[in-house]
Simulated assay, not measured.
Amino acid sequence: MKWLRFQSGARTGFGTLDADAGTVHVHGGTLFDEPEPSGERLALGEIAWLTPCAPSKIIGLWNNFHALADKNGWARPTEPLYFLKAPSSAAAHDQAIAALPEALGRVAYEGELAIVIGRRARCIAPDAAAAHIFGYTCANDVTAIELLGRDPAFPQWTRAKSFDGFAAFGPVIETAFDPARATLRTRVAGRERQHYALADMIFAPAELVSRLSHDMTLEPGDLILCGTSLGVLPMKAGSEVEVEIEGIGVLANRYG
């Protein structure tokens, strides 16, 4: 099922997407705790997209794809290497991402698969991890790439990754999805810049959830960005960026 959150007038809600009919089946209750269909339907033209969940934390992986590690000469990590993005950096499908001032340097897109946690996870085993994954969504891990290393004494991962809008994700959470069988494409101004198999991950989703749960408690709605692969480049202001994952959908945001 494809779950989404929406705004319609002053009202916010959530439901499932019927893409063929162009409608949302509105639900009540809580997304991660047995939501109930209300019987109401809304046309997509009646809603504005919200992020499909509201994470308490956003975790991003670095160096998690074999192809990118090979190209850059990076050693395979023995444990997940990650950073945190501020929850306030979240942006929904169709939401514009404000361009940074030129003084902060170039800004890059990074098309990624994101894991959405569905049940609290603390110190879980890899074979139990799947039960804690609610589903998957598309993400654009936007990065101020020159800001990262501007101070040689302190790499600025948090700042470079956490400007408003720098964690775009959506449009939906797909609960029936197998990352091992899917590919990701990123298009910038209509031109394909990334095209890679999600099966190329060094640490697959279940292992990521298990390992991260030993470092911190993962809560329902938390987001884990699985890292990116080849094809990351800076964006120009005004660029439309689309991250497409077959089986999930297309996340589209304009930068600037």
Rank of each mutant, 00 (worst) to 15 (best):
G135L: 05
G118V: 03
G9H: 08
A92P: 14
T30F: 07
R122G: 07
P220Q: 04
S210W: 00
G249H: 08
L17N: 06
I47N: 05
A86R: 07
L68S: 13
V209Q: 06
E34D: 15
L68K: 15
V26G: 07
L44T: 09
Q156T: 00
D200N: 11
P35V: 05
V232W: 02
V116T: 07
D141Q: 01
P55M: 08
R191A: 14
T23F: 02
G149E: 06
L230A: 08
Y196A: 02
E79A: 15
I245K: 09
G29P: 13
G256S: 12
Y136T: 06
S88P: 10
K57L: 07
A153V: 02
T143K: 00
E240I: 15
T137R: 01
I58R: 05
H93L: 09
F154G: 01
A206F: 01
A103Q: 14
P234Q: 05
S8I: 02
P80T: 04
A144K: 00
S56V: 05
D70R: 13
A19Y: 00
P35Q: 06
G105D: 08
E46F: 05
G170K: 03
A129P: 14
I115L: 12
L50E: 13
W157Q: 04
L198F: 04
V209G: 07
A129G: 13
I248A: 11
L233Q: 15
L218V: 04
I248G: 13
A69M: 15
V243R: 05
R181D: 13
L148Q: 04
E246T: 15
L68G: 03
R120G: 12
A197F: 00
P80E: 03
H93F: 08
Y196N: 03
G15P: 04
L251E: 13
L251S: 12
T143E: 01
D127E: 15
F203N: 03
L31S: 07
G111I: 06
P152E: 04
Y109C: 09
G221T: 10
L218G: 08
V188L: 02
P35S: 09
R193V: 08
P101C: 02
K161F: 03
V241A: 09
G28D: 14
L233A: 15
L113P: 11
T51Y: 04
N140A: 04
V116F: 08
A144Q: 10
E146V: 02
